[in-house]
Design a protein around this nucleic acid. Structure first.
Lengths: 194, 194
DNA sequence: TCCATCATGTAATCCGTTACATGATTAG
DNA sequence: CTAATCATGTAACGGATTACATGATGGA
């Protein structure tokens, strides 16, 4: 069971929408699934090769000489359905931001505030991006059977971004009354080098 | 630079609160940082060893024969400050749930609804847990300089859980009018086995 | 002609999980 | 005495990123 983990799922899924070259696949995963998924370059080719050997995808003439277009086969669609039905493998959480805030006493309040403001700004930007995306896709893909599903994933991004903004504000308030003793420079005190 | 990635940060951070054995460290990371961080077992011992060699932690007599308690040293605290100040390494997103919903046409509406209901229930449970946690810690650690920082991380969990609930409801509404053609069983149609 | 983009792949390496292997202490 | 918990480590494996290596095509 060469369960290439969930890479297989992402690749088959992307190809289930329309056939494309490995290169285009990579861009589709980055640009279309990018908000909630990522695949590294070096995974895509080997996975495609394995899927081809298993008969789940078919290699055809590509747009350039030496290039190939991959299309999902019936067995590939069945395999995808199977993979999507598997229980979700829980990704262990790893938030560098929360790790820093948790040890904020050591980091210093000032830097914590900076991190929070940055996070807030990032979230604000994502929020705008999700709104734009939702409008674009709703128009472009109007009537597509995929549309409602795609919209649920965009909605997830929107809600997360909104939550991040509200959280950042609350967290900034929580740190409001913390004494500004913070810049505990890494050497002895009263040393303004950095 | 054997940058044991961010494991080093988590280990030094945990030891910055109080000295403990490697075993206790593991439990602290699981139970205390667990909402936003995880370290696998096999990372902790080697990392502690490396930190000891660099003089960032000190090994002392442990509570049992053959066991050791580790304490952070001054250089360790400086190192922690350094690590915490580094730019946050963005973790590539990987949401198995959103991956499944995105390809929901293939998975089938029914299973998508089930996934959403599950996710909603999970979030509801976390929410209660975060509330309980916030109350417990506020009482237990009242007056601790770490308290406000810890509360910001709990607040993050709360907001995320709330967002997940609101999102699940919205997503369920989005899938409301999708025709229930869904169970595209992996064989021929008109087969009510499951 | 030359650069950006399209295109395909391999290899080295790192990070992290899991399984394995062992033993001391304490509570029931 | 015996099971649960505390305690420490190593080894094997698998998954993922990154760097390396190469080349075609088309537009400026």
């Amino acid at each position: 069971m060469a369960r290439r983990s969930q890479t297989e799922t992402a690749v088959l899924g992307a190809l289930s929408m329309h056939p494309m070259t490995a290169y285009a696949l990579r861009e589709a995963i980055r640009d279309v699934l990018g908000h909630f998924w990522s695949e590294s370059f070096g995974q895509i080719y080997p996975t495609l090769g394995a899927l081809e050997q298993q008969g789940h995808v078919e290699r055809r003439e590509g747009p350039r000489s030496g290039s190939s277009t991959f299309a999902i086969t019936d067995s590939g669609t069945a395999r995808l359905r199977e993979l999507l039905s598997e229980p979700i493998a829980a990704t262990p959480p790893r938030s560098g931001l929360l790790l820093r805030l948790f040890f904020g006493r050591t980091l210093g309040v000032r830097k914590c505030r900076e991190l929070l403001l940055e996070a807030r700004a990032d979230a604000e930007r994502s929020l705008a991006e999700y709104d734009r995306l939702a409008r674009t896709i709703s128009a472009e893909e109007a009537g597509s059977p995929d549309l409602p599903y795609v919209l649920t994933t965009i909605s997830a991004g929107r809600h997360n971004a909104e939550a991040a903004i509200a959280w950042a504000d609350e967290a900034l308030a929580l740190l409001e009354d913390v004494p500004g003793d913070d810049p505990p420079a890494d050497g002895p005190p009263a040393n303004g080098d950095s």
